[in-house]
Amino acid sequence: MCLAIPGEVLTVDSGDLRTGRVSFGGVVKVICLEYVPEAQPGDYVLAHAGFAIARVSEEHARSVHSYLAEIETTP
């Protein structure tokens, strides 16, 4: 099962479980942040079945395009 969508953490709440309100292109859902405890408002996380499973690395996010640029210039 692999559908996970990137969303921006808006707020973090600690109750019984650490959760956050996460915005996916304007649609907001409460997501459990227990598995990404370092996530802060402004960070992007990948959410799967109500859980954040990873923080999105901005640095690596560009690698899909930089790889393309590299292979396009390679003979």
Binding site: A4, V36, A61, V64
Partner: peptide, 18 residues
């Protein structure tokens, strides 16, 4: 690893512990 923006070599330790 093509999916560096989401995958680290060691994965997610908190999730694996659970």
């Amino acid at each position: 690893n093509q999916y560096g923006r989401a995958v680290r070599r060691e994965g997610n330790a908190h999730a694996r512990a659970a």
